[in-house]
Computed example of a mutant assay.
Amino acid sequence: MPLHHLAVSPADVSGAGLRLALNAAAPTPLATCRLTHPDGGALVLGVLGASHMVTVEHADSAFSEEVSCTAAASTELPHRAVAPGYLLESRHETHSENSFRALAHLLRTRCAQEGGWLGGAFPGDDAALTALAAEPDGDGWRWRTWHLYPDPTGGGTVVHTSSRWRP
């Protein structure tokens, strides 16, 4: 099932501390989903402790993206990052209680019902969720992620990323 109910507390409890690491050794994910490219190769989506990793296996190269508070990088998650064949765009959004809960419900449903999706739900709040979706893009891949951080006073913060990689 692509929506995993994880029996661990999230390690990352705030989107403000997220960092980006490319092609670095990543920790073992709590949940994964492997997708095969029609032209060969694969992409693995991974949920970490309220953060994510994506690894690409290609005939001629490999690539990885980690967005977490423990990523081996000294820089905060940028709004835009570019590397050869790679582009990431990110944004932080603050949601009201109703819109935050509606987004969490939509993402949980998509993870549970659609191919190419992976979700990790954390205990204590139905909206504590990390969701990832990926699909082939030409000879490469594109993926999106949502990191949902509930606010105890209502609503919450969403960190959304959109990435693409081509060999």
Rank of each mutant, 00 (worst) to 15 (best):
E114H: 11
F122P: 03
M53E: 10
L148N: 04
R34V: 15
A59S: 13
A16N: 04
E57N: 05
W146V: 00
A7H: 11
G41V: 09
L118M: 13
W117A: 02
D12H: 01
D139K: 04
L118R: 06
F122C: 06
E89C: 08
L35I: 11
P29L: 04
E76A: 06
T94C: 10
T28N: 11
R144F: 00
D12R: 01
D39K: 13
M1W: 10
G41S: 08
V159A: 07
S96A: 10
T145A: 15
V67H: 00
E57C: 05
H95D: 04
A21K: 03
R108L: 03
P78V: 05
L88T: 09
A25S: 15
G138Y: 08
T36M: 14
A133C: 07
L3D: 10
S162M: 04
F122L: 10
W165S: 02
G156V: 09
G85V: 02
T28C: 08
V159D: 06
R101C: 04
D151K: 03
F63P: 05
V56L: 14
D126P: 08
V82W: 05
S68D: 08
E114Q: 14
R101K: 06
H147G: 00
T130R: 10
L3F: 12
H105N: 11
L88K: 10
G49I: 09
T55A: 13
T94R: 14
T130K: 08
R142L: 02
T36F: 11
A59H: 11
H95N: 06
V47A: 15
L3I: 12
P167L: 01
G138F: 09
Y149C: 01
H52Q: 15
M53A: 13
G154V: 03
S9H: 05
E135L: 02
A21G: 08
H79K: 04
E93F: 06
P2G: 13
T161R: 02
P123K: 00
A121S: 15
V54P: 07
A127T: 00
H92P: 01
R108G: 10
A25E: 15
A104Y: 02
P38I: 15
G49W: 04
H37F: 13
L45C: 14
R91D: 08
S14T: 14
L103P: 02
P2L: 14
E114F: 03
A102F: 08
D125N: 09
Y149G: 02
L35H: 13
V67R: 02
H5E: 15
W143L: 03
L35A: 12
A134D: 06
H92Q: 09
V44R: 15
A21T: 07
R80E: 15
S163F: 00
T75W: 01
T36P: 03
V54D: 09
C33D: 14
A26Q: 11
D60A: 10
L18I: 03
N98F: 07
L3W: 10
N23Y: 04
V158N: 06
G138V: 00
H4K: 11
G17R: 09
V56T: 03
G46A: 06
F100W: 02
L132I: 08
C33P: 04
P2Q: 11
A62L: 01
A62Q: 10
L129R: 00
G41E: 12
L148V: 05
R144L: 01
P29T: 13
S9C: 02
L20G: 02
H4E: 14
